[in-house]
Amino acid sequence: MSMATPQTAVWHHRTPKTRLAMWAGWLACVALFVWCWEMMTERTIWAFVYDAPVAANDLLGRAFPPKWDYIERLLWPLWDTMNIATLGTLLGIVLAVPLAFLAASNTTPSRHILRPAALFLIVASRSINSLIWALLLVSILGPGILAGIIAIGLRSVGFIGKLLYEAIEETDIRQIEAVTATGASQAQILNYGIVPQVLPTFFGISVFRWDINIRESAILGLVGAGGIGLQLQASMSVLAWNQVSLILLVILGTVVVSEWVSAKVRHAII
């Protein structure tokens, strides 16, 4: 073949080989979807599905209107829920901040021992859902708010720790170098060079996690760890659907408010 001149050269985004591979990939996806669909229809009890509109109608009929005067019994558990979320977040922050500094590759005092250990703790905390943490803690500490707070705290450690150590690793090295060049000690470099750079991210992460924790602590009561979830559990077990609907509305309202607060705070800092 002769050399392509600038006028005749043809450009393709992908080589023929990549195009063939992509086509085969799409074919495999379609085949997998068809196979899954077959399996799903085979194992569904269709009698229940045909019945669904009637069942849903029946449930909604029992749930509405919500039992408004039940709100008196919800205010105190709601307060508990918010306390679980807030105190749990604070506990998470207290544990996560030192872990983040140990885990960040530019601030860790020991790259081969403490850093992997801190990273492991962060991953471990993240890999267990707060509901599972609560289940474990209720069986250790007994039911109540304390188990809820600690469950939320332990789950938050991983979230805050991970995002914070990533922020620490992304700090501008030149600012740190400049503080180092003045003869500052390690602690002073941390305080003057690194902390100012990660502070906005830190507040953003903390408020975001608090917002998530409000949602999570609302269901912790299902396993006995206090808060409004206890009421939800009780109402569901006696099939008081008009109470359940009120509880869900209250949770929705709280989440909307907490989301608004967290958005406002983050906007103010960043």
């Binding site: 501008d172 030149r174 600012q175 170098e177 400049a178 503080v179 003057y192 060079g193 100012p196 750079q197 502070l199 906005p200």
Partner: peptide, 9 residues
């Protein structure tokens, strides 16, 4: 420093 390297915040 080049590009000042002040602690911006």
């Amino acid at each position: 420093f080049q590009e000042y390297a002040l602690v911006e915040r």
